[in-house]
Nucleic acid binder design. Structure first.
Length: 550
RNA sequence: UGGGCCAUAGCCAAGCGGUAAGGCACAGGACUUUGACUCCUGCACUCGAUGGUUCAAAUCCAUCUGGCCCAGCCA
């Protein structure tokens, strides 16, 4: 979809770099830590990084930033690969791991030691914190800062060989304890962690820190532009320090952009996890969530997300995109692709009194009038139908042009009917509406002598199948504020409504993830988890816009 | 509090000294066998504020205000 005609600030920088021959080629990357599920914010990063690479005929890498074995595991690796595959970005069929560079990283650490730019420190975590100082006071040099290169080399090798316990020693970069940027006050670059790594198993007991590892990963892979989010801006001086002192010919360049926030939903691993843990939602792919797996289950498409990322733009301003933009994108993507079928979510009976009781006829209209190549929709009609409860009113409001006593409307693809009488149940709710039809108004292309204002949809009760429909509302209460002062989530208890109605017979064969437009009620897909042959469950992906409110 | 970053419509977002693009949302109208779609129309005399430079400022300068990030051996 739409090429963005205007360039964003990152593209301006890249084109400058290209002009100045700073890069051989453009290579970007998506570097997730395998410690959780991906959500729409990650999708922005994946899609944008990929699109940049594509735009400049470059490459895109998928690389796991797996430098902290304590938080990472194989399950997350797998789910992330699944999600990235589903998005359909091209990463050259090669899944990369930072942990595959541990040997090289170790060598670079040794190089820094030899250059007098790194030292082994015996301070405890608490002591390092104290020595670091704070916003108002400069730090103090570690008493171990001036160890000889030989001693540092020996100590670091011993760290690697497991001579010391967790927390006993660290390797630190030697920079400036008085820097106003706390990240430059001799940051730790290697720590001891005697724990198995999902990829390297027990080969290592020391692991590089993000700040040291990341620039190296980028440089090793020939990444030209390392695009990340704003909170890493303060880390850029150290990033540049590392690539400079490790002497890379084509140093990668880090450029930061703002994270994507969306109204009405919660992004943020921690909060999603809380909803999952408290069983407020049905796992990581609950359709109300915005994890990639949830969006997929709900019925969002890779295309819709790509378009969303493109339309929501890239900048450095913290912002929160209207959820309506995402909805617009999925409607746009599904509009011409889906069959438009009929389903009744909140049924009442409609009896056509002058239609033969023993007759079933079959009617035909295109599945999608905007894209007739999808084919012809054939559906049954009889004297006994289901229609939506809201399509019949005892006391119609102003400008209501659906069914009420005496009013003539069109049954979509069938006949004109006029309501004659109705029956209510013991609570006063309409149960059955009776009508007569005009056999000269069959919707088969013949010219009809009069027009009607309203067209309503229906399913034939004699062939209909029952089904469940799930209507989702905002999971979080935006009015109250998404997050309580105590850090818990304000969630909307009415965020899931289950309705039990009817679908036309053809829909009974629908398979998991199939999506449809149900005429007048929205786009739906078949829930892959809760559907069975006997009980099809449809998720409403998004409703149709409507200028009519009952 | 020291440092870094940000501020253009309800929400995103272009704009880079020559007189405010575009999209979403919203409102009105046309069309309509989905109150959908589509198509028209409208939607910032003004760019966080105040001063200054200039023939000319959203763009340059100064000051101020507001918001976000940083004191992990997390990423």
């Amino acid at each position: 979809m739409g090429d963005t005609q205007s360039k964003n600030f990152i593209e301006v920088e890249i084109e400058n770099d290209l002009k100045n021959n700073k890069n051989k080629e453009i290579v970007t990357r998506f570097p997730p830590e395998p410690n959780g599920y991906l959500h729409i914010g990650h999708a922005k990063s994946i899609i944008y990084n990929y699109q940049i690479a594509k735009k400049y005929n470059g490459k895109f890498h998928l690389r796991f930033d797996d430098t902290n074995p304590q938080k990472e595991n194989e399950e997350y690796v797998k789910s992330i690969i699944d999600d990235v595959n589903w998005l359909g970005v091209d990463y050259n069929n090669e899944v990369l791991f930072a942990s595959n560079y541990f040997d090289k990283m170790y060598e670079f650490a040794v190089l820094l030691i030899k250059k007098g730019l790194a030292y082994v420190c015996d301070l405890s975590a608490d002591e390092i914190k104290k020595y670091r100082g704070d916003y108002n006071s400069i730090g103090k040099n570690s008493p171990y800062r001036d160890r000889s290169i030989e001693e540092n080399l020996k100590l670091f090798e011993e760290m690697r060989n497991g001579k010391y316990e967790n927390g006993e020693k660290t390797l630190r970069a030697k920079i400036d304890m008085s820097s106003p940027n706390l990240n430059m006050r001799d940051p730790v670059i290697y720590r001891i962690a005697k724990i198995n790594h999902h990829n390297t198993k027990d080969k290592w007991c020391i692991y590089p820190m993000y700040d040291f590892a990341h620039p190296l990963e980028d440089a090793i892979e020939g990444i030209s532009h390392s695009l990340c989010t704003l909170e890493f801006e303060d880390h850029r001086p150290f990033y540049d320090w590392v690539v400079k002192n490790c002497e890379f010919k084509y140093p990668p360049r880090q450029i930061e952009f703002a994270k994507l926030y969306l109204t009405n939903v919660i992004t943020g691993k921690r909060y999603i996890k809380e909803l999952v843990d408290k069983k407020i939602v049905d796992g990581w792919d609950d359709p109300r969530l915005v994890t990639i797996s949830a969006l997929k289950r709900r019925g969002y498409t890779p295309n819709s997300l790509k378009n969303f990322v493109e339309l929501s733009g890239i900048s450095k301003a913290n912002s929160s995109c209207d959820y309506e933009l995402l909805e617009y994108c999925i409607r746009e993507d599904l509009k011409l692709k889906t069959k438009r079928m009929m389903a009744i979510l909140d049924p009442i009976k409609l009896i056509i009194e002058n239609y033969p009781t023993d007759k079933i006829e079959y009617l035909e209209i295109p599945y999608n009038v905007e894209n007739e190549s999808i084919g012809i929709h054939r559906f049954s009609f009889s004297n006994e139908l289901y229609i939506e409860r809201e399509d019949f009113q005892i006391n119609p409001p102003n400008k209501y042009y659906r069914l009420y006593i005496g009013n003539e409307v069109r049954l979509m693809g069938a006949y004109y009917i006029k309501a004659t009488r109705y029956e209510v149940d013991e609570f006063g709710n309409v149960k059955t509406v009776y009508a007569i039809f005009d056999e000269n108004t069959k919707q088969d292309g013949r010219v009809i002598d009069r027009k009607v204002k309203g067209t309503i949809h229906f399913v034939d009760a004699k062939t209909a199948k029952s089904a469940e429909f799930r209507i989702f509302e905002n999971l979080v209460d935006e009015e109250k504020g998404k997050i309580n002062p105590d850090g818990t989530i304000n969630y909307n208890k009415n965020s899931l409504t289950k309705k039990y109605g009817f679908i036309e017979k053809e829909l009974a064969d629908a398979k998991a993830f199939d999506s449809f437009q149900f005429i007048r009620t929205g786009y739906f897909n078949v829930d892959y988890k809760d559907s069975s042959k006997d009980n099809l469950v449809f998720n409403r992906i998004v409703d149709l816009k409507s200028s009519f409110k009952l």
